[in-house]
Write a protein that binds this DNA or RNA. Structure first.
Lengths: 215, 215
DNA sequence: ACAAAAGTGTTGGGTTTACACCCATGG
DNA sequence: CCATGGGTGTAAACCCAACACTTTTGT
């Protein structure tokens, strides 16, 4: 579960109360029940354990299955990337906390590796899909969006070009409304929203495109 | 297991001898043992059952876990994309066969969907990685490579541009040698090979690149 | 009026596709 | 010497990052 916050990506971790790896931080999750598929399961776990109901996006990352990844009985885990919009701040239990992705605490098992995989997947998809919708509030200013993209990518993105890229892709929709200007004055920002509320590949072929249509 | 052959992508399928879904065609695979991870397992299954030892590339696709996807006991499957070079033609048992991806026979379970997912993944990666190495022979002419790319992508690719794109990415290496010309004459083709024998992302950011280095 | 923040125009560079053209060989 | 297939040159289009400039507000 990742979230952009204060200009940095954060991940929701849960401090283990029991051995193995007592006191270390682990990704939330749990056992798969017989009557659910893995995505339903992860959504249920998050809803039950950490009261997160509003995941804006969930996707499979990878299966981790090395026999030795967890001590004890053989365990196969399906890792997920989950995203939460920047403006929702779900109630979370005392033993969980959001941690910035650089500067993770001691993590349990291979969870640091999984977290990195999640971050990489997110970064890649920011470039060729509209996945920003899952990190941003329903409506936002370009500045807010710029901050979110910068946090997720780990480097500064220019507001100008971000807006242009998303507009060209048809992912951005002006609402027509504006927000009041800030305390120091300045032009009041316009509010935007994403066109699509779900994941869509906006830039399918970087290269080796299909031949142009003959007209 | 996909392979480019005769200008079309083919998938290796196995005709089920038993119920459920008797006589339908299914993807090769089998049970995970306690002492192996999923990738080791799929390689073992392919080696044992269909005598395929030379997979040039293997990667995880996705986990399929709907409770009803297979009748009977609850089954969770990890699907893989495997690639075989066009010039190897492994010995395969009588009850398996290569099928062209368009025009699949009756497939078992959700295996048609999985096959489509594999094809889509391959197509996407052809555009931003050097994954062609896994479909091509160790050495090849640009024409042969063009045919392979066209087969995998499902549309004609121009040899000229293919060569240029791969060269710019630094993925292509001229061997200096040439093949004799064909029966009808023509200029003898030059032989090339891929620089890297493993998967590498050659075109990481289509858009929203990191800011340029200040010098 | 001035500073601050948002948004627009423009330029230059880099890639890519498409296509015309040149090269090497067998018949 | 001509047909055939391989390979190179080049032009037009496109897209993007960078940056200067304009617009709109609060003080």
């Amino acid at each position: 579960m990742l979230r952009a916050q204060d200009g940095v990506l954060h991940v929701l971790l849960w401090q283990r109360a029991r051995e193995p790896h007592r006191n270390r931080w682990s990704l939330p999750g749990g056992r798969l029940r017989d009557d659910e598929d893995v995505e339903t399961s992860i959504r249920r776990q998050l809803a039950e354990k950490v009261d997160v109901h509003k995941l804006s996006h969930v996707e499979q990352l990878s299966v981790f299955s090395e026999p030795a990844r967890v001590p004890g009985r053989r365990t196969v885990a399906t890792a997920f990337l989950g995203l939460v919009p920047a403006d929702v701040d779900p109630e979370i239990p005392d033993d969980t906390a959001w941690h910035p992705l650089d500067g993770l605490p001691d993590t349990a098992f291979d969870h640091e590796r999984i977290t990195r995989a999640a971050r990489d997947r997110l970064r890649a998809k920011l470039s060729y899909t509209n996945i920003g919708f899952a990190l941003a509030p329903a409506e936002f200013t370009i500045s807010e969006l710029r901050r979110i993209y910068s946090a997720a990518l780990g480097y500064e993105v220019a507001a100008t070009n971000l807006q242009r890229v998303l507009t060209r892709r048809g992912a951005l929709l002006p609402t027509g409304r504006t927000l009041p200007a800030g305390p120091a004055g300045g032009r009041p920002p316009a509010l935007f929203r994403f066109t699509q509320p779900d994941l869509e590949i906006t830039d399918p072929f970087a290269v080796l495109r299909p031949p142009a249509e003959r007209t």
